[in-house]
């Protein structure tokens, strides 16, 4: 492989988009070419900086409501979680129906693809909702810690969020809020570590694709963890690195 080809492939190589054979050729070239290694490192640094620092803009809720108001009703069941302004029952029913259809007509592959798509939507919405939190959603007072936050949710939610982590020296609990999450309301717990903010969204898990085992990923530079416990879904998101986010996740949901 020559340098020109190697540098052309570096970006897709970093993203794991090359075939195994092509990736091996690239690795071999990089092991002997300092210039192309430098190029790969420069690509990696740029990707990290863009993903972590480039501001992302979430659509204003007013815009979403206007769009929904002018949008025609679907004639068939929806296979994916729908928007926050739809009644909860509608999305739940639609998702269950779509899953049933997928099982019948598409077999296991279709179901897998659908589940992956649903997970990506959950991850994406988690990041968007975190951005809205960072944008200045008011938090409940927390002078009394978790004992003060949890009762505050009473009457604002139709479930009692199962969260026992009141914060510690590493992750301080900043407060709580009730915010829209997809088609339902979420209890939001906001934690801080140094200058980093982490939002934990807890929702009723019915009809949403929360995985029963922990799933983690990086979405637009944010570390995201999703899991389900009992009948509640949990979405944890922060600009902390994934290792630190998992430390917080382990405090929230001890293994």
């Amino acid at each position: 492989m020559d340098c020109s080809t190697a540098q052309e492939l570096n970006l897709n190589g970093l993203r794991g988009r090359l075939s195994a054979e092509r990736a091996a050729e690239l690795r071999e070239h990089l092991s002997t070419c300092a210039r192309c290694r430098d190029h790969a490192e420069a690509e990696r640094v740029l990707s990290e900086v863009l993903e972590a620092r480039l501001p992302q803009y979430a659509a204003p809720l007013a815009l979403k409501r206007r769009l929904a108001a002018s949008w025609p009703p679907s004639t068939r069941a929806a296979p994916a979680p729908r928007r926050i302004w739809r009644p909860a029952w509608a999305a739940t029913r639609a998702t269950a129906a779509a899953a049933a259809v997928a099982l019948v007509v598409g077999g296991s592959t279709a179901v897998f693809v659908q589940q992956r798509s649903d997970l990506r939507q959950l991850e994406s919405e988690t990041v968007n909702d975190h951005l809205r939190m960072l944008g200045g959603a008011p938090l409940a007072q927390v002078a009394g810690g978790l004992h003060e936050v949890k009762p505050w949710f009473g009457g604002k939610l139709d479930f009692a969020p199962a969260v026992r982590f009141a914060g510690n020296d590493d992750f301080s609990l900043q407060g709580g809020a009730v915010e829209p999450f997809l088609d339902r309301r979420a209890a939001v717990f906001v934690y801080k570590r140094r200058l980093h903010t982490a939002s934990l969204f807890v929702v009723r898990g019915d009809g949403l694709a929360f995985p029963t085992t922990l799933r983690t990923g990086i979405v637009r530079g944010f570390s995201v963890a999703l899991w389900k416990a009992g009948d509640q879904g949990y979405a944890l998101v922060s600009d902390l690195n994934l290792r630190e986010l998992l430390e917080l996740q382990a405090e929230i949901a001890p293994p």
């Binding site: 803009y57 659509a59 929904a68 949008w71 929806a78 296979p79 994916a80 928007r83 919405e125």
Partner: peptide, 20 residues
Amino acid sequence: DEVVRQALTHADALYNFARW
């Protein structure tokens, strides 16, 4: 129907692109 069912789920990504 696919457009009607799915399009609104991309509102955030579209808005971000439009802002830039």
